[in-house]
Design a protein around this nucleic acid. Sequence first.
RNA 1: GUGGGCGUAGCUCAGCUGGUAGAGCACUCGGUUGUGGUCCGAGAUGUCGCGGGUUCGAGCCCCGUCGCUCACCCCA
Length: 419
Amino acid sequence: MKFEKIAAPKGVREYLPPESKAFEWVREQLISPARKAGYQLMELPVFEDTSLFNRGVGESTDVVTKEMYTFEDRGGRSITLRPEGTAGVMRAVIEGNLDRGQLPVKVWYSGQFFRAERPQAGRYRQFYQVGIEAIGIDDPALDAEVIAIADRGFKNLGLKNYRLEITSLGDAESRAAHRVDLLSYVANLDLDEATRARADLNPLRIFDDKRPEIKEAMANAPILMDYLSDHSRKHFEAVKGYLDDLGISYTVNKRMVRGLDYYTGTTFEFVHDDLGAQSGIGGGGRYDGLMEVLGGQSLSGIGFGLGVDRALLAAIAENTLPTERFNSDIFLIPLGEEMKSYVLALAEKIRSEGFIAEVAFGDRSLKGAMKAADKSGAKFVAVIGGSERDSGLVELKRMSDGSSISVKIGELQMALGAR
RNA sequence: GUGGGCGUAGCUCAGCUGGUAGAGCACUCGGUUGUGGUCCGAGAUGUCGCGGGUUCGAGCCCCGUCGCUCACCCCA
């Protein structure tokens, strides 16, 4: 009987050893600046009530209209695999009453997100993001710190070929004024059907079109930044000032568009130059109406999401990954069946001292076991047979140069630490 | 969802104008008594993505399909 193989679902990105080590490292570099800034972990479900995203992310967004993994569960509830992180965090903050305590609420998260898009380089149906949210304080200094935390993560990775673009999408008042003028401008353009449909959903989208003829047509379109209210303008100027003081370089992109409806005010994007079409490695911004829309208080918030998969691709492109591979400290080879139990116990003891100890399994020849030890990258090897057990002495062999010393079995841990 | 490119051993690939599959690396074992990385020898591994067609005969040609990949779109 031969069974057919089952492949992974389309578009998922998996990280297997040895590559998983690089993934783990990248994720840690990206999130450690948030921990150091006092952000605390929030561990959330990967699926939520569908209406959370419909309302939170926005009915007009592509994410909601055509990219969500939505299904009915056994209780007849409509469930969606989370396509982004902010809506879920806000839901949990409201539900857990975190907004009733000390503000700002500062949390970080890490995990998988899901969008049913056509996969391509750097774009997967299940992808990994780390992110932070700071909720409840509307202070431009906080905006600057949030951006600085993201930037620090990328710097931790050793990345250089990326840039930070910022803009302000203004408050509701600024946007309403702009929208009127933009709609009438776009109405006079000669657009194809698909583009017209996108324009009707959200006219800002047309700013993001990559086709030269569209870019040209939009050259004289009204820019949101020219419609900012006094409050929005002052806030944005202050953010830029803080970034300057922090020595974080940026360019103001007046035509930046974000695909999630909740963004307001300060909005930013990190773009890497070596990644092909999917070049955004992180992005975020302020979302002033979101909590209220989700049934909570009217509090402002700001946060970001960083793409772990893409950051890893960027680190590979810039060749900044650390080169050391997985190494155990010692590889123990039991000689014969009767020594296995003794060696398993010895391995446990060595591990309890904080060392990484592996055991040779299977009844292979000593030569085969030595090969396995070599491939494991172990720094030391010890062969343990009856004579070692009886004498209490073992040859501790250093794999890098083949030298060995005789040590007492009971003092193996000390020898590992010393050498 | 729309296009382009590609699908041969675990990996990277070769396969002449169609004659029923190969290399390198990796893997396993061995080169005599309990010690790896080099070297030598031996071995295992493929429904040539899948289905159909043309042909005496298809990995090579045709059609379809699935998958991967890149781009559009969108975004992390």
